[in-house]
Design a protein around this nucleic acid. Structure first.
Lengths: 196, 196
DNA sequence: TACCTTTGTAAGTGAATACTCACAAACATT
DNA sequence: AATGTTTGTGAGTATTCACTTACAAAGGTA
């Protein structure tokens, strides 16, 4: 599952294309041009376009899981963990906007079953951590118990995804860290346990 | 802006293809086969593929606005209006799942600027009505004022869209009306004003 | 009957797609 | 120096795509 230097360069080039031209712009021809390569040279490093995309998505899933696991292991308060879980994502996507295109798109999802499953796997990684924090918060009486943990996760993830969608439609033009923080803050206000 | 009988048949055929094969399956060849036509016959009724898609989306925007406006005009309580706003959508999408593919996809959004704008227009129609009900509810003290109306709209729409996304990924296999109702119910629990 | 409009078809166009293959240069290992 | 491996290229392939064109049948209208 290791990737070579050249493979990483290609994955990064694919990322730049996704950011600038979307899924439909990600062709072998464009990718070769971005690499200043011939088209056939790409196939020295990956045996298919699908493999490139999956390598890219796997890289994301892996690093994301690591980063989020670290956050949950800290001594932060539940609320701070919750916020940090999203802050971390906003920072990452700000640096790597192409992943927003890749994950929150379905142009890719239709492309192949394997790609589809990799994207769902990424979502599950995120959900797993959010669920853990929300459940902990409910147990400690920090978050409301008026609805189930799964429902809290759904609402939280929905707000997050919609925010990323808006950012993408706006062509990454607004500050995702700032606006994201304020969005998460309002979710937090809503899900906090009602004082007795 | 009127459409002929044949045009409507083609739009419906396009819908069936979207439901079964997704955006990438919606080709002129497949559309002609579904119509039991030659490919060139399609071009007797629409001058481009883009025109077909836009006609389809416009039809959705139009009927949706009508239906949602009717709900807001009723004498129902704010909470009932809110629920009805979504129930109505769930019923409609259950009957016309292809619109879920069309609207909540970006394969189409990337396809052309005109299509992109039509899809955003549909979202705005929905947001407009949800915003109105939420603002009314806040004013009457039914919904919480701890966050702004816009933030409430964002969270509500996010939960709705994510629910539709899950339905689609699950290949329309679960009962969207039943599960949708329960999802909306939990959103409602969350946004209700805290009792003093 | 003569003509026009509508609605269909068969055959093809050019452009784009992912991918292949025979070959060569550069480099590493012996 | 001889040999093998890695990494590149140029010229192709087959397929798919949206769309066009020349033509014909059917139906209404003069």
């Amino acid at each position: 599952m290791d990737i070579s230097e050249r493979q990483l360069e290609i994955i990064e080039a694919a990322g730049r294309i996704l950011t600038s031209s979307g899924v439909s712009g990600l062709t072998i021809k464009n990718l070769a041009a971005e690499m200043k390569f011939s088209e056939s040279a790409i196939y020295r490093h990956f045996k298919s376009k699908e493999e490139i995309i999956i390598a890219m998505l796997n890289y994301l899933a892996q690093t994301m899981d690591t980063r989020l696991t670290e956050i949950l292991a800290t001594e932060l308060s539940v609320e701070e963990k919750f916020k940090e879980l999203f802050r971390n994502q906003f920072s990452f996507f700000k640096k790597n906007p192409h992943f927003v295109v890749a994950v929150f798109s379905d142009g890719l999802m239709e492309a192949s079953k394997a790609i589809n499953e990799t994207i769902l796997k990424i979502m599950e990684v995120k959900v797993k951590h959010v669920h853990a924090v929300l459940a902990e918060g409910q147990k400690k009486g920090v978050f409301t118990k008026s609805i189930s943990t799964a429902e809290l996760v759904h609402i939280t993830m929905g707000a997050f995804r919609l925010h990323m969608y808006k950012w993408r439609v706006a062509n990454f033009s607004f500050d995702i860290k700032k606006s994201g923080d304020s969005m998460i803050q309002s979710v937090l206000t809503l899900i906090r346990a009602k004082s007795k």
